[in-house]
Design a binder for these strands. Structure first.
Length: 278
DNA sequence: ACCCAGGCATTGG
DNA sequence: CCAATGCATGGG
């Protein structure tokens, strides 16, 4: 079934995240399309003129696909904002025309994914996470359903350390799965209250909470100032010397209100998708 | 054989 | 309040 996507839209750059750092078995790039298990069915998304082809497609799947393809972002408003306020950003928006950051559809998966990415390289994180998904998730046709909260709540730490988790991260993930976190409630709370609730869980720090706001809740003003990649991007596009401090990046973020989330993604995209400006 | 990579909790001053 | 430390793997 064809699903139209408003212009500008660039499928290749918008799905780059699923390819660059290695396979993600729960969001798997396979033979030119993106595969994910939704409910008990495996969905395939591929590029088509003016939009994407999605098989199969119903209302539930359309909602997930909309997240994966970043449909809720208002690129037109962002483009106008960039043009009016910031030459460097305006140029990035032009170079990355049609890039829509993917939104991670599931809150628990988002948090576990962030835990795997804490401190280590994304290549390591992808490898470790995919081993966990393969062992503890449910296999679809080619992709896997991410391990459920129930499955991880019942996991032994050894099952995760065998996949390459540190002992500490294994405790974080199992503790998170067992924690009494109301994910539906988080959607209704303002950014600062979401962060406060998440940071109260062992293993979830400010960096993880900021990316949850940005990548799962799609909050416009989310700005992961502590992110190493973002700090490098800020150095590349706004600095001229050493890596800026977290506080410096935080202060710079105010300049991009209320589009910090899209700005962060475009700055990172500037590093990873087209290389730093010359 | 190093060293760093999209952090975090813990411990000690 | 802030500095130092350990963590486990992948890639250079």
């Amino acid at each position: 079934m064809f699903l139209p996507i408003p212009e500008p839209y660039d499928f290749a750059s918008s799905t780059e995240r699923f390819r660059r750092f290695g396979p993600d078995l729960a969001n798997l790039w396979h033979e030119g399309g993106l595969h994910r298990v939704v409910g008990s069915r495996e969905v395939r998304i591929e590029a088509a003129p003016g939009g994407v082809d999605v098989e199969p497609l119903d209302e539930e799947i359309a909602a997930v696909v909309g997240k994966l393809l970043g449909l809720e972002f208002d690129l037109g408003a962002f483009q106008r904002f960039a043009g009016e306020t910031d030459p460097a950003l305006a140029e990035l928006v032009e170079r990355l025309r049609g890039y829509r950051p993917p939104i991670s559809p599931d809150p628990f998966e988002t948090l576990v994914t962030s835990i795997t990415a804490q401190q280590v390289s994304l290549a390591s994180a992808f490898a470790i996470r995919s081993r966990m998904i393969e062992r503890l998730g449910e296999r679809g046709r080619v992709a896997y359903a991410f391990p459920t909260r129930e499955r991880l709540a019942a996991a032994e730490p050894g099952e995760l350390t065998a996949a390459g988790f540190s002992r500490r991260k294994a405790e974080y993930v199992i503790g998170l799965a067992q924690a009494d976190l109301d994910y539906a409630e988080l959607e209704r709370l303002p950014d600062d209250e979401v962060k406060a609730l998440l940071v109260s869980v062992r293993g979830l720090g400010e960096w993880t909470a900021d990316w949850f706001l940005a990548r799962h809740l799609a909050r416009p003003e989310a700005w992961p100032a502590g992110d190493l990649g973002l700090r490098k991007a800020v150095a590349a596009f706004y600095g001229d010397g050493p890596l800026p401090s977290i506080e410096e990046v935080r202060v710079l973020g105010a300049r991009f209100a209320p589009f910090q989330n899209l700005t962060a993604h475009y700055l990172l995209g500037g590093l990873y998708l087209v290389g730093p400006a010359v």
